[in-house]
Design a protein around this nucleic acid. Sequence first.
DNA 1: AATATACGCAACCAATTAGTTGCATTTAAT
DNA 2: ATTAAATGCAACTAATTGGTTGCGTATATT
Lengths: 113, 113
Amino acid sequence: MTTNDVQNVFVALADPARRKIIETLTEVGAKTATQLVPGLEMTRQGVTKHLNILADAGLVTIYQRGRDKYYVLTPEPLEEATLWISAIAARWDERLEALRQFLEDDNETTGET
Amino acid sequence: MTTNDVQNVFVALADPARRKIIETLTEVGAKTATQLVPGLEMTRQGVTKHLNILADAGLVTIYQRGRDKYYVLTPEPLEEATLWISAIAARWDERLEALRQFLEDDNETTGET
DNA sequence: AATATACGCAACCAATTAGTTGCATTTAAT
DNA sequence: ATTAAATGCAACTAATTGGTTGCGTATATT
């Protein structure tokens, strides 16, 4: 499941509204869907959909207080994203020398589009 | 641009084919689009589209050698993703105490769907 | 010179995504 | 008891995404 976990986390982080929710929950601690609506330009149901995606990634936990449903950040799954990235970075450092080899043989071109 | 950068990086990382390309380039150093086709179950044009998205995020650089176009990883933009995540983690640690407060007042519910 | 290989571009398609509206249900407040 | 507030669920729409096919062009290879 670990491989699917990192997928869900990266998908969750790929949307600006969801990152903003994460930032807000980081600052405020706990909020309901309706409390999150102002600031995100979107209806409550839209916010709820994003919260569900965050919940699927394990990034929020829900605490129900009567009719209110408070969402709280669960940052642990972020670690999996960080691990994936740092594994790449680590292996990349090993490859740098071989890369230099490649570049010396060649004429370079700009990679910008 | 920094805010848009992190958006492009997270979008790039959200697709499994693109993460696989990143992993392959990390191990092999440089490959052309057609060389990447076996292993990803997809046509060359499909691969090219993914490579363009990676290039938009600044995650690959292109070196042209005659008619061949070699893609090489540029891992620097990954740092922005890592920074975003670690900023969240850092602020989150500060909030933990306030959170404990919130949880004590309440009856908890499972956050799984 | 002729053939083969690698790439670029554009149109197209199916599936997913982001968001909406509308309505029903549950819980709280007066 | 009535009204108001918060959520849930489902159907629907528009835009984006992931991928394809079909072609033309540029560079190698024989």
